[in-house]
Design a protein around this nucleic acid. Structure first.
Lengths: 207, 207
DNA sequence: GTCTATAACCGGATAGAC
DNA sequence: GTCTATCCGGTTATAGAC
């Protein structure tokens, strides 16, 4: 019997879906139970409260996020062009494959959800921070070596992430303002990637 | 007696605050009544339901957003450098002055809040779309005239907005990952603006 | 227009049988 | 481990006096 078939795991999977769709406040324990093919009492048997269940889901998601970002940031020692191109590419792929993560996250962060903050604050000493520092160092070295214009490394990382994130954050409004232009999703994503890479390379490489 | 002192307006103001703080699902009619110095029954007297109250607030906010963006987009006929510099500047100022708008918005958009979608879809034929088209035209003309590299105008607008928005969207997580570096908010904002303008100008002006 | 009281319902949590 | 039945607090909404 697969681990994923256990009742506990079915509840986890269902809870994740419902929390993504409805947010913490909007999620209903009954709906989670129904979708898991179980009953409410089983949720309270494995987890003790809605809070505890949500915390378990959030921890799961954080693990995923950092695992994937880590693989993105594991830069082989390549030239700046390749580095930027592949970071943007991997990041966009990740966001496309896990739109629900960005969604849940954004919503709860802006809800001041205390559980999310609690888990987030435990990350202070996590490896994620070291990976980011490494990229910043790499950017500074590129400036030292004259292969990149000298720019603020922290803001440059924010620029890259901001460019990658925008479409996924704003999709619903974008689809209203550019209805026709965004009908072909694959095409939009390709043009998006090209535009981001184009801006970054031209903006960062020495003139 | 000022218009803003009427019970109806006090309810509107209170409702806006509470919806921003708690989101639609988390907002409580009782808290809105308390904060307005009225009682629940008065809310139902002026508005008919929580839904209708929320819709009124959303319409209000949309009006504000588009009024402000319109003033940002009302480009005097200036050179590209000045245009980009001032668009970014005005946009960041707006976001700094109204963090609550971006917040409410992000949360409800990603909750699939049907009321927000309803109001948003009524914008299809709004002037906002024409303003955006005008900026896109302006970017294309700049490319024709050779004062800008030829880039995809729609994606360029997304790039600008994405760069401006990022810090406000991600602030809670940023404050965890870069705790020390973000302690001085004013300094962060100034560096942010400089970095964005630097990237855009170097990325867009001809090489 | 304003207020109190209350209806009607819903959702998280638990008791207890199997 | 699983399920049914139920408690209990809280929330939207309304009735009706003033």
């Amino acid at each position: 019997m697969l681990k994923g078939d256990s009742t506990r795991n079915k509840i986890m999977a269902a809870a994740r879906e419902v929390f993504v769709e409805k947010g913490y406040d909007g999620a209903r324990m009954q709906q989670i139970a129904d979708r898991a093919g179980a009953n409410k009492a089983m949720i309270y048997y494995y987890f003790n409260s809605k809070d505890a269940l949500f915390e378990a889901i959030i921890r799961d998601i954080f693990k995923e996020i950092f695992r994937i970002y880590q693989s993105v940031l594991q830069l082989e020692d390549v030239d700046l062009r390749t580095m930027i191109t592949s970071i943007v590419h991997e990041h966009l792929i990740f966001l496309q494959n896990h739109p629900e993560i960005a969604r849940l996250f954004l919503r709860e962060v802006h809800s001041d959800n205390p559980i999310l903050y609690k888990v987030m604050n435990e990350l202070r000493h996590d490896t994620a921070r070291r990976d980011i520092k490494a990229v910043m160092k790499k950017l500074e070295k590129a400036a030292d070596d004259g292969i990149m214009r000298r720019v603020d490394p922290m803001n440059t990382i924010w620029n890259i992430v901001g460019l990658d994130l925008f479409y996924f954050v704003s999709k619903p409004l974008i689809n209203v303002l550019w209805t026709k232009e965004t009908r072909n999703e694959a095409k939009v994503m390709q043009a998006r990637e090209e535009s981001i890479v184009d801006l970054l390379l031209n903006g960062l490489l020495p003139r």
